[in-house]
Design a protein around this nucleic acid. Structure first.
Lengths: 152, 152
DNA sequence: TCTAGTAAGTCTTGAAAGTGCACTGAGTCA
DNA sequence: TGACTCAGTGCACTTTCAAGACTTACTAGA
């Protein structure tokens, strides 16, 4: 199987990865969540090859994760902003950041803290069950075929 | 910047991505969470090139995300199991799956459902604040430098 | 003993992506 | 006019990936 066939898989993870699963895309999105919006800013902060950046941004726009918004005329210049769909990736991103904090932060502690503006405290993200509200652990979850499953 | 320099970045996301950020690794982990453990099973289910699979598994073992466990002697054969560190990736994975469900499931619905064994219901993962317990939205979070930040 | 089968890789080779950097194009500013 | 800004493109080069045959070490059956 080649990578560009992934989106035909009947698996939501595969489809999500077809959009954001390559090496640079999540870093681009991290910057986007940090309010970076312009091509040269992304490029300077990430040190990514310009060609690859252009391609990734275009792909994210195609997928509706980012949108291009003109911020000046003469010459027309566009910036990239997260859409609602893009904002929906935040839980996944934050979970990854916390995982990185837990396992790779030095003894000084995590490089970035996140403050929950609603309550005013620095926090970790906790994944909870939408039904009972309790924290969810991998061992307490069973996956089973849903309505969109294909039979084998 | 080349990819293999990423783990030197003082960013937890970059470090996390240096481990699980390539195209196949998260799919390998998806299978691992579905209790797949053997080389040939991973290979058959994913259709991944054997060489790439061998390399990814070795990397995940190096990083302590998976561990090799002998399940027979003569000849010695190993299987790959998630460690605690590996299980810690579940929230990120599940968040991604739900994002995929939301945006890419056909009209039939998601291909896979997740049941929370503690309460017995199919659920979605909700990211909540570890301090106040409320659901967290991207717009309600401010990132600021932590103790491990490097000054520029 | 010979043959087939199983499981976990390893090797080979052409194709695809990524990298680094110079360059373009449209416009501003002095 | 010349220098500068920003968002990309073009190009030569290097690295990684894909597909499948091959290897190693052992078991089971004829």
């Amino acid at each position: 199987m080649r990578w560009d066939e992934l989106d035909r898989e009947a698996c939501s993870l595969a489809r999500a990865l077809a959009v954001i699963g390559d090496r640079w895309t999540l870093l681009v999105l991290r910057e986007a969540f940090l309010r970076v919006r312009r091509f040269d800013d992304f490029q300077a902060r990430l040190g990514i090859a310009r060609r690859v950046l252009a391609e990734r941004l275009a792909h994210l726009v195609d997928e509706g994760v980012l949108k291009k918004v003109a911020y000046q005329d003469r010459p027309v210049r566009y910036e990239y902003r997260l859409t609602e769909k893009g904002l929906g990736l935040y839980p996944a991103l934050l979970s990854l950041v916390h995982w990185g904090d837990q396992h790779y932060a030095g003894r000084k502690g995590p490089p970035v803290l996140h403050r929950h503006l609603a309550c005013g405290h620095d926090f970790r993200g906790v994944l909870t069950c939408s039904v009972c509200g309790e924290a969810v652990e991998a061992r307490e979850v069973a996956a089973h075929p849903g309505p969109g499953a294909k039979r084998r």
